[in-house]
Each structure stands twice: as C-alpha cells, then as structure tokens.
Computed example of a mutant assay.
Amino acid sequence: MTTSQHILACIDGSAVTESVCDYAAWYASKLNLPVGLMHVSNVPVSTRRDLSGAIGINSRQFLLEELTQLDEQRAKIENSYSNALVEDARSHIQEKFAHVDVRLYQRHGKLLPAIEHFKAENRAIVMGRRGEDHKNSRINIGSQIETVARASEVPILICSEAFKEPRSYMIAFDGSKTAIKAVWMVARSPVLKGMQGHIVMVGNHNDAAKQSLSAAGAQLEAAGYAVGAHHVTASDAVNGLLEFQMDNDIDMMVLGAYGHSKLQQLFLGSTTTEIIASTLSPIILVR
C-alpha cells in the first residue's frame, strides 16, 4: 500500500451524494485508506456573439464588460457552492466514519479528465447512479458512468440508495475476460472478505462453462472466501441475475463491465447498463 492512494468519491450535490460518501468511506475503511472527496465544477463560458456593426462601439464595450462581470459572478457562486459541498460531505463522513481520513479535491472542467488527474492515487472510484443532471429521469444511470468505466483501470462502485453495510455479494460470471478479471479482483482484495459470496452463471450449461465456473469458485475459495457457485436456468441473463439476487437477498453485485465495444453495444445492447438501470443495489464494476 502506498500512502498516496485513496478511494475517490465523485460528488455533485445530487440526492445520491450522501450514499456516495458512505459507500466510499465503507470501502476505504476496508482497505485502511483515506477518502478523496472530489467535486468537479463545469461553469459554462458565456456565448459572446460578434456585436460588430450591430450597435455602437460604446454600447458594445459596455455589454462586453457586463458579460465579463456576469462570468466572474457565476464562477464565484460555483466556487462557493463547491466549497460548501465538499466541506459538508467531509463532515458527513467524519460523523459516521470517524476513523476514516478525508481529502478534499475541487476541479474545473469535465469529470473524466478530473478522475484521470488522480489516476496514480485511485484505488477505487465511487459514483452515484443518478447525477444531478439526470435527477428526474427514472431509469437514467447517469451520463458519466459508462464513459468512466470504459476508461478506468480500477473498480468502480455505483450506488444510489441510503447506505446499508453489505453482508453478501454475488459475481455475475459468464466466462468472459471481464468476468474472470472480476473474480481475480475479488480474490486479491480484502473488501468483500468475510461476506457470504455467490458466483452466478446464467445459461451456458456446457462442459467448458461448467469448468470455467468451477475454476472461478476454486480461485475464490483458495483466497479464503466463502462462496457458492451457481448455474441458473434462464433465457435472459439480466432477468436471471436479478431474480437470483432477489431470491437470495444479496446486498451487492460485482460485474465485469462493458465487455463489448461501443459499436457492438449499439447492435447488441449492454448487459452492464441493463443491470445498473434495473437494480437499486450497489454494484462494483470491473473493466
């Protein structure tokens, strides 16, 4: 462990902010790491049309000066909001997880470049399922999740509901490279150790699939995990996984994220996106 690592919590002041803070603090406590609270401000630049010829020189100069002042005021308000947001979030974490250290980060621009700025420090990333820009959309998972997941080399925890300490988890397994990596990630990390685990495959009842599932279960058991391997008969992978989760009262899911390219996803759809949009449980994505 390096002292510079942290669990990066991406907050935006939406309804899921407290959930993001709590799950980030929980994750950090499992690894004895600090939480890095990050808010990204994206203040749009005013659209300044070419006013030449439309009005007099003096009037044009006056309007440009007013636009400049409005830009400065808007930036000051956004900075004040950002300051208050990260301070409130820090207080929230320290009240519930007193032993977890908190670092504050404030960036300007887009979310992904801000996350990549801390690439060397990020041990995991925590994001809300629905951001402030999509708070009124019932099924929208947040415009940034797929973008960040495809670019990230560390696990991403997605949450939305009030924090509930996980007691059980399931790994969605299909024998793909991303699913195998998800198993490898769980096996080498203490985050989920001590919980009741399940590794679940839907369909694919051939010998090769059975061997792959068995090997994945053996890898977890060798790492000290209590885990059961399950073959589920269902025509639809998403429904099969969600039904298994509900029937077994499982708190958290682990998914190998976005195994298809964006072009393949356009024609085939994304199991990852369907699951994220269909459950309110926290999900750990592994790319």
Rank of each mutant, 00 (worst) to 15 (best):
P190C: 09
T233I: 13
M170F: 14
E146A: 12
M201H: 06
M185A: 09
V154Q: 15
I156T: 02
D207F: 06
G197E: 10
A229T: 15
T147R: 07
V148I: 13
E165R: 09
E153Q: 14
A215Q: 14
L242H: 05
Q219L: 13
S189K: 03
V148S: 01
F173W: 11
I250L: 09
G240A: 09
A218H: 11
I171N: 05
A223P: 00
I180F: 03
H231L: 15
S176F: 06
E165H: 01
V154G: 00
E243H: 09
A218Q: 15
G197Y: 04
K181E: 13
A234R: 02
P155E: 04
S143F: 07
V227G: 05
F244S: 04
T233M: 14
M170P: 05
D247E: 15
S143N: 11
I158N: 04
A229S: 15
M201A: 05
A216N: 08
Q219D: 11
A149G: 06
M201L: 06
A208T: 13
M253L: 15
N239K: 12
V202Q: 03
G224Q: 03
D249G: 02
F163Q: 06
V200M: 02
A216R: 04
G175M: 06
S176R: 10
Q144T: 08
V238D: 06
I171D: 06
S189W: 03
M170W: 06
F163T: 07
S143E: 10
M185G: 07
W184Q: 13
I145F: 01
G203Q: 08
N204E: 13
G194S: 03
L157A: 08
V191C: 05
Q211S: 15
C159A: 15
A218M: 13
K181L: 10
G224A: 05
H230E: 11
F163D: 04
G203E: 07
I171M: 00
M201Y: 10
F244N: 04
A187D: 01
D249W: 01
Q144N: 15
E243A: 14
M246D: 15
E243S: 14
A209Q: 05
E165I: 03
Q219R: 13
C159P: 02
A182S: 11
L242P: 11
K193E: 11
D247F: 01
A209P: 14
N248D: 11
G197A: 08
Y225R: 00
E165Y: 07
I141K: 00
A215G: 11
A216I: 07
A216W: 04
V200L: 03
M201G: 07
A208D: 13
H230Q: 12
V183T: 14
I156A: 03
E161D: 12
V238S: 10
V154R: 15
Y169N: 07
A222H: 12
M201K: 07
A162N: 13
M195K: 05
V202K: 04
H198Q: 10
V232K: 08
I156W: 10
Q245A: 08
T147K: 09
T147G: 04
V148Q: 00
E165L: 05
N204K: 14
H231T: 11
A215S: 12
